[in-house]
Write a protein that binds this DNA or RNA. Sequence first.
DNA 1: CACGCCCTCCGCCAAA
DNA 2: TTTTTGGCGGAGGGCG
Length: 343
Amino acid sequence: MISAMTPTEPSGPRSAKTSAPRPATHPIVVVAFDDVQLLDVAGPVEVFTGANLAARRPFYDVRVAALSETIRTSSGLALGATPLRRVRGPLGTLLVAGGPGASAGELDGELLRHVRRLAGRAERVASVCSGALVLAACGVLDGRRATTHWAVADLLAARHPAVRVDADPIYIEDAGVWTSAGVTAGIDLSLALVASDLGAGVANTVARWLVLAARRTGLQSQFSPHLVRSWPDHDRDLDELVAWMRAHVRHDLSVPALARRVHLSERQLARRFKQATGHTPADFVEALRLDAARDLLETTSLDVASVARRSGFPRRETFHRAFAKRFGATPAHHRVSFGARPA
DNA sequence: CACGCCCTCCGCCAAA
DNA sequence: TTTTTGGCGGAGGGCG
């Protein structure tokens, strides 16, 4: 499956550093089926086609594919599609949508055959929502970390013990296989793919156009951090640390300070943190603080300096820079756009 | 806006 | 022997 296709491509499309000749186009096939969730299909398609506009070139060649030429989505709207049997590789991205059709009962054998075939010919494979069940049924997720909609996480884990299911993150990437949580998380995932292909600038432009504008950082749990789950190799200590960090963004959250707090060496803290969250400590801390700052901007009338201080940025300058980098707008401008109307 | 310093991250390796 | 740990140092990037 995936491992069979990587050797030819020593460094995947994610290594943005190597300025190897970039491919002119990147074919994307979105796999749909009867009772697919329309948003799972539409969200990523909008993101990728939007990226073409933002990048001012037709980089992504996006198609929706299904067993038949017309499918019925779970909301009742019909969707036109390219027949899967006519889809040939190689592909840039194979993305499987989710929906009731993916989680209810038996998956269509012919659909699985097509997905398996195309997965082996794609640079990377992705799923939205319960589309992870389809990928898992094809064996694509075996041995990998993966996420899915919280409501089917247990089902995924039960049906496919070889998959390391983690229902916390909005999306997960493991060795070229990307999985995402429910519905709109597919948009976050797609934006991440765009960012790795065409740069964060393009991704931010698309996000702004779609106006759901960077609502999420990708670091938040699908749900409250208080809903603690447990499974074999889960890192309780790190969960607790993360929960504490969320509540104490003003504290010293440097690597040495965090390491001291959980009685680990700095090296070990960094390793386990990345293992548990998929993010480096500094990245995570910055996102945490910016989330807090954004909330304060939207829900209070504190001046920017106070917002900065309360969210763990001692200096306004640093805050300003970080905020603009992540959200593509200055704090003041963000408040004008999203803040509560003063009484 | 620029530049130097410092923090962070990660590969590497030796020790446990 | 294999796996995990922790220290080192360089590269990179952001802060001041």
